[in-house]
Write a protein that binds this DNA or RNA. Sequence first.
DNA 1: TCCTCCATGTAAAAGGTTACATGATTTG
DNA 2: CAAATCATGTAACCTTTTACATGGAGGA
Lengths: 185, 185
Amino acid sequence: MTSASMLEFALAGLLKYTPQSGYDLRKTFATTPMRHFSDSPGSIYPALRRLEQRGWIACPTDPNRPRDPRRRQVFHLTPEGENSLHAWVSQTVTRDDVIWRMPELMLRFAFMDGNVPRATTLRFLDQFEQALAAYVAELRIEFERSSSKMPLNTGLLAFESGIEGMEAQLGWARRARSRLMEISQ
Amino acid sequence: MTSASMLEFALAGLLKYTPQSGYDLRKTFATTPMRHFSDSPGSIYPALRRLEQRGWIACPTDPNRPRDPRRRQVFHLTPEGENSLHAWVSQTVTRDDVIWRMPELMLRFAFMDGNVPRATTLRFLDQFEQALAAYVAELRIEFERSSSKMPLNTGLLAFESGIEGMEAQLGWARRARSRLMEISQ
DNA sequence: TCCTCCATGTAAAAGGTTACATGATTTG
DNA sequence: CAAATCATGTAACCTTTTACATGGAGGA
């Protein structure tokens, strides 16, 4: 159950660390490793308004003056937004997640520090490894069966690329876990 | 310039190899390595109708009887659809492609056999390697700069996972190229 | 003053998701 | 004949993309 879009969670997660304006967030998307998010105003400003209506973020306003849409509006995450973010990153990692929502999983992992205790992060990596290893094993079998039935072609190679990508993720998860365990207190 | 959605190209590409019905295509999405496409009727049947209206696919119909929507409709790719598919897979691989459209690149590659000569496939891999290697090099620099500025955290680790995924893709591309060169007479 | 950047907004169009609906065909 | 499966369809809703619009602030 996804209660909000990836973009909305990305915005909430960034606001958790630093209260900032929509324009600042757009610059983050345009110039950092988060650049695979679109920085178009047509996606970000409506998303911020949805988050505000849902009570996840807020913008301190002088109650005497109505808000000027031509002025910079700095948003911060509300306690309610923090709860939602917490619940989202803490979800169990499922097989469906690793098949259909890998980018979302990585976003959840990226936002764990500062939101959940180290134990939750390690549990995430455990579940991630398990689900991914099981799925990769299935894919390997499927791949062997396919490649024994037909000569090498680009379809098979593309399939293999997907498998190798997942195997790389799996190796990363194992290394990440041992590194985090080293530095946890 | 994407003239059609990934789903539409996926359908066209499958119909190029085997004329089949919407239901067959749904089963393919549900049970093969292409399972990251949704097999929901609400996406596939409207997509097939769009392709038909565009003249990319057609369904042989008895002109005397109107089409019964309760009967199996077998579609095939038209010459026009073949041209579009050909043009799509043959596009130059850009930096933006490797940043924002990696899954689409892999789909294009998967559909090359039977649609374009081997030389086009090898050119694709060359461009892919070049664009990806350049981008990964940038990311590595960004990563080193970031990790020297802050202690290890899940955000950094997620960043590293993305880089390692791309490095895996890069290794795959090099191996794929040499394997294809071996077997192209 | 003019230009550039800051900063937010809106509207139309398109696509996908979810849920529901319908009838035909096959199998036990 | 009943149940499962085959096969297609539709409608509401939501998000994103694209393109355009608006006005303020600061520097040359």
